[in-house]
Every structure is written in C-alpha cells, then in structure tokens.
Amino acid sequence: MARDNNTFEQQKSRMAKEAGFIAALDQSGGSTPKALRLYGVEESEYSGDDEMFAEIHKMRTRIITSPHFSSEKVLGAILFEKTMRGEVEGRPTAEALWGAKGVVPFLKIDKGLEDEAQGVQLMKPIPGLNDLLKEAVAHGIFGTKERSVIKHADRDGIEAIVTQQFELGLQVVDAGLVPILEPEVDIHSETKAEAEAMLRDAILSHLDTLEEGQDVMLKLTIPTAPGLYDALADHPRVVRVVALSGGYSTDEACERLSANPKMIASFSRALTEGLSKGQTDSEFNAALGENIDKIYAASA
C-alpha cells in the first residue's frame, strides 16, 4: 500500500487534531517472551524466533481485528518490523490498519539500547536504516518510533540523548515520514522530576532549530509535575505529545495521564493487560474494550 501525499496529510491531520490514543504493538525480541507469558503463551509452546514471532503476530492480529479496535478511539498503532511485513486477514498489516480501520500505522525502528553512561542509555546504531525507511514508505507507514532511556538527572547525558533523537528524527523526516522521538525517563528514577525538567528544556532548545516542515512527535514518560510538557505540545513543530505507560498499571497510567490534558496515550502493556490466549472471543473483546475505553477516556 504505497502512500500518496493526500493520505499522508489526512493521517497527519488526524494525528494532530483528533481524539484518541496510539496503540503500541511493537514488542521486539527482548520484550516478546514476557508479553507472550502475560498473554498465556509459555516459552515451551514455541521454538526459536520464527515461532515466537508467529505467536505474537497472532496476538496482534486478534487485537487489530477486534471490533473494539477502531478509529473511533484508536488513532494509530506502532508496529514491529515483522508485523509490518506480515498480514492481517490476508492484507498487509499497514493496509489492514489504515484501509480497513482508519488507524494510522507507525514503525518501531530502534535496535535496542547501549549500556548506561552519564545516566542515560543511548540507542544502538541502526544498520540499513535508509533501506528500512524506504520499505516503510512503500508499506504505507506514516511515521516511526525510536526509544532511548534516561535513568538519572544528568544534564550532559540528557543533552546527548536528545541530540541523538533529533539527529535520527531528521533522517526520518528526510525519508518522508514523521518520527516519534521517545527519550523515556525511567519511572523508578530517584531523580525523575529533575530529569524531566532538564529533558523538557533540552527538547525545546532542539525544537527551535527545526525548520517549517520538519515536524516531529514526542513520546514521553508521564511527568511527575502535571502539565510539565505543555510547552512542547504547543510548539509549532510538534504534531502531538504522547505518553508511554512506563510500567504503571493501566489504572495508574490513566490516572496520571488524566492530569496532563495536552498528552494522549501510547500504551503497550497497559493496553494488553488482562488479555489471554485462552479467552473466548467474547471475553477477549470485552477485556480489550475495557482497556481501550479507560485509555481513551484518559486521553480525551
């Protein structure tokens, strides 16, 4: 499903203005076994990466095809590479999302984290990035997501992490996609609030260097101080600021998000909480619908 400019602008307008949230369906190699265990699939039930990813794709397909997973409350969905290259009910995944559901597709592009230095974990290099971005455009992907992590309030480390995010983001923009920059602050950090204030200031400084058309999204940990990121949401180069659940339960993440009206959710574990392979379709859809309703209400 190759994207045209009209579709891109329609998707961008939807992401900027409409109510809803982004579903994070991008668990990759390291996080997939845990996600499957929570879903009721033990490691003894599959052998090797191919079978593991086949199991997670079944879970994602069940979510995407649920009647509760619709454009009424879900604005977008972040996919893992194998999910993008796969199919949902005989259609390429991005086409099944946008063409059938009106849900904007994104692609996770980061390849994991470096060891901690200066209180942060930078992204590892991304081999073959230009080819991956071209492939994403060909699949009809709207934007990308790239995650790094802040552990402590170290000003130099935070500046390094923001610089890396924006450098990668500009490569994504040059490829014709909209990047979601994700410098996550660890919710367990003893200096979380201080780190978040430093992060806001560093992001604002970098946003002011962007030119018209170099638009980005931001995915940030829900801040300790409500409204801390309002200035980012109001910046002309920011399409939307979205929140990660960061390990909070669905209820706590939604409660914290509700205090930040200029952020919307982009939850992963909180979205799939309580879902199980062994549930009947009726039970599965009811549980998913309840999670979607909570996350949507907190994002509205």
Rank of each mutant, 00 (worst) to 15 (best):
L25P: 04
G20T: 04
L133N: 01
L218W: 03
S299C: 07
D230H: 06
A175D: 00
A117T: 14
L129T: 01
D50N: 15
E89W: 12
S205M: 07
M84V: 10
V41C: 14
I292P: 00
E159M: 11
A24M: 08
T61K: 13
V185R: 04
S282I: 11
G99N: 09
K219S: 00
K58E: 12
D251P: 05
T209W: 02
A23L: 08
E81A: 15
F166W: 10
K151Y: 11
E211F: 07
V216A: 01
A175F: 07
L275T: 05
I126H: 00
K34I: 14
D251Q: 11
I295T: 03
I158K: 02
Q118A: 14
R37I: 14
F69R: 09
L38V: 13
K73Y: 12
S71W: 12
R200C: 04
A19N: 08
A225E: 14
T32H: 08
S70G: 13
T144N: 06
L132K: 06
E146H: 13
E182K: 05
I203P: 00
Y39C: 12
V103W: 03
I22E: 02
A297Y: 05
L220C: 00
L38A: 15
L168P: 04
L218S: 02
K294H: 04
K101H: 06
K262I: 08
A193C: 07
G247I: 05
K58H: 10
G157Y: 06
E211Q: 10
N285Y: 00
G140A: 10
L228C: 05
K294S: 03
E184L: 09
R269K: 09
P236L: 03
L207P: 09
K73E: 13
T83I: 11
F80M: 11
A231T: 06
I126N: 03
E290S: 09
G176A: 09
G157E: 05
R91D: 12
N260S: 04
A94R: 09
I150K: 03
D156K: 14
T191Y: 06
I150N: 01
R85M: 13
G289L: 10
A24R: 04
R200E: 01
R14S: 10
E89C: 13
H206A: 06
T272R: 07
A297K: 10
L79Q: 05
T224H: 01
